[in-house]
Design a protein around this nucleic acid. Structure first.
Lengths: 244, 244
DNA sequence: CGCACCCTTGAATTGTATCAAAATAAGTGG
DNA sequence: CCACTTATTTTGATACAATTCAAGGGTGCG
């Protein structure tokens, strides 16, 4: 019994037709569980498959020659993974599970069929890719032009926004299920420095911490200090073609 | 008389049908010239339009609160600009001309029509967006995890690859039509430090310079030092649906 | 209980930014 | 075409942010 995770995410923005919903459901017919730390795909693996993340938490990253790692993106349930691989025979990025996860693998050809049969879904997929792109460029700007403290703060705000997108009841407090090393690899810092920045944010009263739990104590100030913009809200999809 | 810049770029990878070519040509019916330094679109402007860059050189960037600038991408002729704006009412990024340029503006609705009428073109546009995405993540990794020298070196290699894509006759030597400040804003460095890095690369015999002209003198060593990967080659588009 | 893994803290080092100024090149108007 | 102004490149001295190295203390887990 396939779920409709991806369809559910898209439904938050447009009303899907039954045919569209059905087509998307077919991408989730198979499923696969990956344990915490498990690798779904290594860079340079054959990249024929794509995935829908049904549950858990995953991340995409690259390893550089000297062994250092740059985390490119964290993935939350309902996202499509591995889209960047569609243009290369070998995957440009690695994907692994940050927490135990379930993914639904499907072939590139299935994506082509969706695009062919449903122009509106094709447009939505393109649109979602743009949201991710803008989110990436925000991080690019953060790495290039903002301080360590701002980058860590922005990551916290981003996590809260994205957790909230999946669960509207999440308020100022949430669980940051990442090690400080992972935060460092995402923000371009060392784990040691991440620790100091978290402490500083705490001392300044912008956040509070207890174990994994983080509380945003002064959202206004934190947003100002980090230049954070929530890119998952206020989408403008009025131009989409009609659904079939 | 509309040109077919965008169609020409896509033609390097697949054989377009006459109908596809014609449809793409309609995106280039109007045109507009922008002088060096001219701004095509400011961030937070209404972002209803997209563009095909017919000639010249443009760049996309963001300005941060403190006035610093992060250049997100340089754009060469044949590229589609402003795609990231399709999901937001207000543009997330600014676009300006690095050299005098000609662009062809078109509406989002025209993009929707292309997607609706030609699934293969929709797939190609999505695929191209992925190439750009991977190129962005390469830079994200460079900013997060590589040295100043490596970032500057990678920018040089990237420029050469992209110039060569437009003009196969370009060899080891090319004109880098950027100020050192622009290089700095693209690589997350100060202009002063870019200068020192260029000088160092020169002293080490990896490159030579005279005025704007740069020559790659030891490509092997430069590629190794920068982890550069050319993402514009070896695309795998065998999965595309049939053309209409 | 013992072994990993993670967090925390300190001291020393290094890469890059900042500030300042001279030298060179590129525009611009007369 | 020259004189003037304005950008850009180059160089040096200094300051600082973040890394590196090192070690102690938690915490969960087999």
């Amino acid at each position: 019994m396939p779920a409709h995770c991806f369809a559910d995410v898209l439904s938050e923005h447009i009303d899907l037709t039954p045919a569209e919903r059905d087509t998307l459901g077919r991408l989730e017919e198979r499923s696969r569980t990956i344990k915490r730390g498990g690798i779904l795909r290594r860079s340079n693996d054959r990249s024929g498959e794509l995935f829908i993340l049904r549950s858990g938490l995953m991340m995409t990253y690259v390893l550089l020659g000297d062994g250092s790692r740059q985390i490119l993106r964290f993935h939350f349930p309902g996202e499509m993974l591995g889209l960047s691989g569609i243009v290369y025979a070998q995957a440009p990025e690695s994907i692994c599970a940050v927490a135990e996860s379930v993914v639904c693998p499907f072939e590139r050809s299935a994506l082509a069929e969706v695009i062919e049969a449903h122009p509106r879904l094709a447009s939505m997929i393109l649109a979602y890719a743009q949201v991710e792109r803008v989110s990436l460029t925000d991080r690019l700007a953060a790495l290039g032009r903002t301080s360590a403290k701002a980058r860590v703060g922005a990551l916290l705000l981003d996590w809260r926004s994205r957790l909230r997108a999946g669960d509207g009841s999440i308020g100022e407090s949430f669980s940051l299920a990442l090690t400080q090393e992972e935060v460092g690899d995402a923000t371009g810092l060392t784990a040691v420095h991440v620790n100091r920045m978290l402490r500083q944010l705490e001392e300044e009263g912008l956040i509070a911490r207890e174990g994994q739990r983080v509380t945003i104590r002064d959202e206004r100030a934190l947003a100002a200090a980090t230049h954070y913009v929530d890119r998952y809200r206020n989408l403008d999809l009025g131009w989409l073609p009609a659904g079939r």
